[in-house]
C-alpha cells in the first residue's frame, strides 16, 4: 500500500492576520490536502484561507545554529523603536 504523504497546514484565521502553522494532514494530492485541512482545522469557523505544503519540502533551521542565526539580532537595538529617544514635544510617533 502506498501511503498518503504528509502536508503541513497553515491557516489564516482572520482577514489581516498571517497564516499560522496549525499542524499537518495526510493526503494523496494537494487538492485533497486542502480539503482535509479544511475538514480538520476549520470546523469552528477558524479560517478564511488555507495553505498546504508537502512536509518534505520544508527546510527548517537547525537548533544547533540557533546562536549564529538568532543571537546577532539580539543586540541590534537600533531596529526597535524604543532605541530612539525623542523629546516629549514630538508626541506619539
Amino acid at each position: 500500500m502506498a501511503d498518503w504523504p504528509l502536508f503541513e497546514v497553515f491557516i489564516r484565521s482572520k482577514h489581516g492576520l498571517n497564516h499560522k502553522h496549525v499542524g499537518s494532514v495526510h493526503a494523496a494530492d494537494r487538492s485533497m490536502a486542502i480539503e482535509n485541512a479544511r475538514e480538520l482545522y476549520t470546523r469552528r469557523n477558524e479560517g478564511v484561507s488555507i495553505w498546504i505544503i508537502p512536509a518534505s519540502e520544508i527546510t527548517a533551521s537547525s537548533p544547533d545554529e540557533k546562536e549564529p542565526l538568532f543571537d546577532p539580532s539580539n543586540d541590534k537595538v537600533y531596529r526597535h523603536a524604543s532605541f530612539y529617544k525623542l523629546p516629549k514635544e514630538v508626541g506619539h510617533m
Partner: peptide, 9 residues
C-alpha cells in the same frame, strides 16, 4: 480507495 487516490495523483 487509498491506492486509487495515490495512483490518480
Amino acid at each position: 480507495v487509498r491506492d486509487a487516490a495515490v495512483a490518480y495523483a
